[in-house]
């Protein structure tokens, strides 16, 4: 069997001295889409930040392997250059920095520090923008500055489509989207799901999973994965809520 792209082993994480993740195990292989579902406050976003190496999150036990390499000691930018990426739930604004300059700089950074020839870059960018229904004026606007919720999410997916990471964590990319935007963004995500990539979709609604079909669904609760299954699990969650998971766990 091929090497997993991302393997999380017994991961324990503290923020400000409080344990948030309490033993997460998860394996993402190439060509797989995983959905991680759970209530607000269950620790889903923490997991996404830890994978990306946020300095405020302290790994106290366990490890994260990217293609068998332990990345615990790597800085955020090093992880990004290896091929990890996070689509943020709440992308921050960077006033004064245009989207086009940003994309050009980050594309270079994640492609081995080599500049893509400007013509090629433009062509690739235009194609991706068309796919995501992103208007041209996006490019001269400042990163997320005054963007609507939907625009921010489109920009996140646009970035992923330019940076071409192999492992993508999408943190509640569906939140704040109307139905049309959800469809467009979902088709953008589907385009990112290839034989070479692995995607972890973090969400607490079934909604998006109607458009992006996961291969695996995990239920996250109190800092760990408490149930895993196929797509049917998300349907059950949608119909019955999260309470049954809690009950089953209590009984167990």
């Amino acid at each position: 069997m091929a090497t997993p792209l991302l393997k999380i082993e017994d991961l324990h994480v503290e923020v400000d001295g409080k344990e948030i993740l309490k033993g997460v195990n998860l394996t993402l292989n190439a060509g797989e889409v995983h959905a991680l579902m759970g209530r607000n406050g269950s620790g889903k976003s923490t997991l996404s930040y830890v994978i990306m190496g946020h300095p405020n999150y302290k790994v106290t036990k366990g490890r994260i392997l990217f293609k068998e390499q332990d990345i615990n000691e790597l800085a955020t930018d090093e992880r990004a250059r290896l091929g990890l990426a996070l689509a943020f739930q709440y992308p921050v604004a960077i006033p004064g920095v245009s989207v086009s300059n940003f994309l050009r700089a980050t594309t270079k950074a994640t492609r081995g520090g080599v500049d893509v020839p400007i013509k090629e870059f433009r062509k690739e960018l235009t194609e991706n923008m068309d796919k995501l229904g992103v208007p041209k004026d996006f490019l001269s606007r400042y990163i997320n500055d005054g963007f609507s919720g939907g625009e921010k999410k489109r920009l996140e997916i646009l970035q992923l489509s330019m940076l071409k990471p192999s492992v993508m964590v999408l943190d509640e990319t569906d939140s704040g989207l109307d139905i049309d935007a959800l469809k467009t963004v979902s088709s953008g995500i589907n385009a990112l799901a290839t034989k070479e990539t692995a995607i972890l979709l973090i969400t607490h609604y079934q909604r998006m999973l109607n458009y992006v079909q996961p291969d695996f669904v995990h239920v996250f609760q109190d800092g760990r994965i408490v149930a895993s299954g196929g797509p049917e699990l998300s349907t059950k969650l949608e119909e019955q809520g999260y309470d049954w998971v809690t009950q089953e766990l209590t009984i167990a």
Partner: peptide
């Protein structure tokens, strides 16, 4: 802001310079 920029592969120096350049824009 720095975490966001670094998560796209920019080094800490590059990220700070980008925020500063944006501020002066």
């Amino acid at each position: 802001q720095l975490f966001y920029l670094m998560s796209r592969g920019l080094t800490a120096d590059e990220a700070k310079a980008m925020v500063v350049n944006g501020f002066f824009e």
